Amino acid sequence: MMIVTTLFLISYLSIIDGQYLQMLQTVQSTINHNTATLSIMLQEILRRLPKDQNIAALREVAFGKRTKQSSDDYRWPSVAVDGNLNSFSRTQVEHSPYWEVDLGRDYLIKRIDIFNRKDCCGDRLHDLYITTGPAHNQMYPCAYYKGPGRTGEHLVFKCHHSKYARYVKLVIKGKESLTLAEVKVYAQDD
């Protein structure tokens, strides 16, 4: 209703000696000026905020690293760390399918992002255990995701333990196919 009223008002105003055009130009100029002023104010506020030295910078450490998974269903595990959200890794339907990345050295892992497939099958991601560790026989829980996931979903998991890890492993408990578009592992910058 408000749109119809506004259109009627605009039509009426445009008839009256071109005053509508002048008024519209004035409003647009004011909005542009206010937007620029707010942007400058925000930049100044951010510049003046004290930097917290206790907040560590995180960097992504899994891109292009060596991967493996419990089985291959015409999709290789390495595509889950290739930076392309349109590709995906996939295991066969099996009991406790897993995917793992070897980071090459130990990192203090703080966060793991998982991107679900964009085209279908998001609900396959469920009952997911995420573990990290310095060796295959020393894996520690990072997070658990009950699910089910949604197609195209971006999930973020924070690892609250303070353990260094070289390996990140994702395991679905139960019979399923583990499908991942992308996995990003964020570690504290040394």
Rank of each mutant, 00 (worst) to 15 (best):
R117Y: 07
P148Y: 04
D119N: 14
G149Q: 01
L108G: 09
T132Q: 10
S87T: 15
A143E: 02
G147M: 07
W99N: 00
H136G: 10
S89A: 15
V101W: 05
Y144I: 01
K110P: 07
M139S: 03
F88D: 05
V101T: 01
F115V: 11
M139H: 05
R117V: 01
P97K: 03
T132Y: 08
Y129A: 13
Q138M: 09
F115Y: 15
G149P: 00
C120E: 08
S96N: 15
Y140A: 10
F88W: 14
W99K: 02
T91M: 02
T131N: 12
L103M: 07
N86H: 14
R117H: 08
Q138E: 13
T131W: 06
C121E: 10
I109Q: 07
D106P: 05
A143G: 03
Y145I: 00
R150M: 09
Y145F: 15
P134W: 06
Y129D: 14
P141N: 09
P134D: 12
K110V: 10
D127T: 13
Y98W: 15
G133Y: 06
H126V: 03
Q92L: 14
R90D: 10
L128I: 06
A135M: 08
G104Y: 04
K110H: 11
P97L: 02
E94R: 07
F115K: 14
P141K: 05
N137H: 12
Y145G: 00
G133W: 07
N116C: 11
W99F: 03
E100C: 11
D127H: 13
M139G: 03
L108K: 13
E100D: 02
R105P: 02
K110C: 11
T91Q: 00
I130Y: 00
I114T: 02
V101N: 01
C142A: 14
N137Y: 06
I112T: 10
A135E: 12
E100L: 15
Y129G: 07
Y98V: 01
R124T: 00
K118V: 13
C121M: 08
T132C: 13
R90S: 15
G104A: 09
I114S: 01
